[in-house]
Design a protein around this nucleic acid. Structure first.
Lengths: 199, 199
DNA sequence: ACGATTGATGTCAGTCGCTGTCATCGAGGC
DNA sequence: GCCTCGATGACAGCGACTGACATCAATCGT
């Protein structure tokens, strides 16, 4: 779920609350300090005051702890895409949905930067990031199909949208702090349209 | 390198020749028979008449044995893209290069089908496939940049090309045997152009 | 021919990711 | 205040992967 805003009312663990959040925090810190590969799950659990076994009860594997927000993001993206006017072209609808979730990243830009530094430095994590993006693409394609867009147009619009997102995200990360992410996305979208128009 | 055409003149292993090829063959067979996760590296090595340690001298990990041809494909793709006339638009150049490597798959369609069945059934392998495709995209983007295409157009054309390839490959696999892969690629490309044009 | 060299393989020990199983503890319902 | 239930701890074990060293076969130089 989230790593800062937590419902502290419901005590979770046997001892301290928010075991999951503590694990996420400990993992991020250790991955940044010593690198992903040099960090063992036992170390993460120890820093969080838990055991290795408990880590794997909260996260499927060592990488997944960095992708806790992916499901949330996908749901947000799909519901936004569902709500977009059917009059828009599929690609525009996708781009609109992507721009709509831009604040999701902009509000966590410092967290996102550290996270991305970890992911970019390890092939194993890049693989996981790519399959999450592919999952976003599949979900968006399915949503487009529900709205009557035929294949392969639906899949192509979704995949092209993911491509736009990937490149826009890279450029936004390298851009000055405060740059509007949604604007970068729209710019990359129009660039794609130019490229696809042929010359 | 290759799995069928081998220079049998140079004896490789301590005993039988072509240890690498035998490992690839044994891995494919076992992955198909029992599934990827249910197969241990020790079993693969045993069937190939080798030891587990030798497997890891030939392949970085248990998945990589299924992606031996990726480097070769990437090189072929890049050199084809380099040779494409600079007059073509970036996306058309990418699509042309992709269509040019279509025979690479068509000649190995039965092998490719079995391989794809294995990959599709395991998330771990889909991750590896995605990072190989991403590597293809990066290589093509770099080639476009060398040819004077500016960013983000170069990256977008390359990534869009990869998207076209992915979807075209899926559709070609599901199409009747003998369908022309290059033609499917071109069809998906024109579909993408329609989608991007707005309509 | 024959010894030295080289490269691929075998052997072994070890770490770490990850899982199944059962015991244990803490909190809420009765 | 007991009881049930969910989360955690403790433990054993498998399999992926690595480092270090020994070994063997083919080749090269003489």
């Amino acid at each position: 779920m989230s790593e800062t805003v937590i419902t502290y009312d419901l005590r979770m663990g046997r001892w301290e609350p928010d075991a999951r959040g503590r694990l996420e925090q400990a993992a991020m810190d250790l991955y940044l300090e010593h690198g992903f590969e040099q960090t063992t799950v036992a170390e993460i659990a120890a820093r969080a005051g838990l055991t290795e076994r408990t880590f794997f009860r909260h996260f499927a594997d060592k990488r997944e702890v960095l992708f806790a927000g992916a499901a949330e993001l996908q749901q947000l993206l799909v519901s936004t895409l569902s709500a977009t006017a059917t009059s828009a072209s599929p690609l525009d609808a996708v781009a609109t949905a992507l721009a709509a979730v831009a604040p999701f990243f902009q509000e966590r830009s410092d967290f996102g930067r550290r996270r991305q530094r970890i992911i970019s430095s390890t092939a194993e994590l890049r693989e996981r990031e790519l399959i999450k993006l592919a999952s976003l693409g599949s979900a968006m394609a399915a949503t487009l199909r529900e709205r009557g867009v035929a294949d392969p147009a639906a899949s192509l619009a979704a995949e092209a949208g993911v491509a736009v997102f990937k490149i826009a995200f890279e450029r936004w990360q390298d851009a000055p702090v405060g740059t509007d992410f949604a604007q970068v996305i729209q710019h990359c979208l129009s660039e794609l349209k130019v490229v696809a128009a042929g010359a």
